[in-house]
Design a protein around this nucleic acid. Sequence first.
RNA 1: GGUCCCAUCGUCUAAUGGUUAGGACAUCACCCUUUCACGGUGGCAAUAUGGGUUCGAAUCCCGUUGGGAUCACCA
Length: 476
Amino acid sequence: MKTRTRFAPSPTGYMHIGNLRTALYEYLIAKSTGGDFILRIEDTDQKRYVEGATDIIFQTLKRVGMLWDEGPDIGGNFGPYVQSERKPIYAEYAHKLVELGGAYYCFCAHKDEEDEVENNPAHTKLKDPCKLIPLEEAKKRIANGESFVVRQNINKKGTSIFHDVVYGDIEIDYDELDEGVLLKSDGLPTYNFANVIDDHLMHISHVVRGNEYISSTPKYNLIYEAFGWEPPVYVHVPPVMKDAQHKLSKRNGDASFQDLVAKGYLPEAILNYIALLGWNPGDEREIFSLKELEQVFSSERLNKSPAIFDIAKLTWMNGCYIRSLSPEEFDAVAQPYYANITIPINKKALSSALQPRIETLGEIAEQIDFLQAVPDYDLALYENKKMKTTPEVAEKALKIVLPILSEVTDWSNDNLFEVLKAAAVANEMKNGQVLYPVRIALSGKETTPGGATELAVILGKDETLNRIKAAIQKLA
RNA sequence: GGUCCCAUCGUCUAAUGGUUAGGACAUCACCCUUUCACGGUGGCAAUAUGGGUUCGAAUCCCGUUGGGAUCACCA
């Protein structure tokens, strides 16, 4: 049988990291075995629906290359793929389940009085008086227009056992199970019902979801059983944590996928990093493209315990991805960050200076803030013990270097370096005594993306000469 | 609280009864070096705890502690 997995998010806002990781595992389970990855939108809670959230889901998945084989936008053989469009299907199966004895009609809940519902002891399992209403009478009341919900009927005794790929065999007593609402009074199903119906109808073979669903899984199995359906393979995954106590969640303002991208993390790096949060390949390799993950993924190597999201490691990994980009690719992703620079500079040279120096694209702004204009700086900057320079040495060096540079025609890094080195030798100075002051004169900063000659290439001859002249004046 | 689940360096993890408990990030030191990086070398650092079982336990069993989840007309 073909492996079929589904990613079934609720359109409630941004795509958070835990969600994306679940989608990744679903995608990988399908693709590592030549199966299908299905996208389904679970929008049965109209109160939580957020406009535009579905587009974010589409865009995020596309951005990381996790393309779906069936979904709301492209259709498929088991549509529709949006739950709100499947309302009649759920109603049909809900009534069928009542006939089969797996559920019953309940009239005592009133959605306008939520507090009352929550505290209503009548809803304690097996004590709901509605369970005792004869089916014929219940149908009459419904026909009369009375508001109702369909509630799961759980009469089984003993212990339920099911197997999970990650957690192994899990036993839960049927007594622990609540007779939850399956079909709400608005006619829409709850997750507890919709996921079972859809997963079956869409031929889902492997259900991957957060481990918070472990304790309700026996309830779903009861529904499969009542219909005479085969339950799927269960793969419950532990949560992604913010720290030891708290789950990563958008609600707490934790970074979402789009937040990370906005901070200059590459989608490929984010995906690679989260793949390793709760899974490992069995060897010591850490860098994987999505395609490579498809090759080596195995659900048996999924971890049981929660993993804390470590931005430091992601940052390191992002640096690896940045460095592995070709110069052209890096230049392309860096361009938007150069938008504030209006003076003519050598952007290619800037990109190659930046590429080995940054771990996230967001660091670019700080690295290049001196390009547009030299910031106001203290002359003490020319004081450097290791380079053996002082403001006086700097003034001398810059005055030596200015006429020499004016004559240079080959404005390449290598040539500039040779020229400046020769100037140092000719004046019995150390390399650093010449190069360091030039770098400060060009940048006004202690640390820069590149040395004196690299900055000179980036700025170009005219701007370089101008900045050295300005520095000489400042030193005088 | 009932029930279920989890527990190896600070973090992500490897080791499916026998390893000096391995790797990566972070951190520290050194090297490289026209600053800062990149890169290279090395250091520090873990089996929560108490009992079993076994010739031998991170690994199997029980208790303890700690943490998480669940008990909605949310998913």
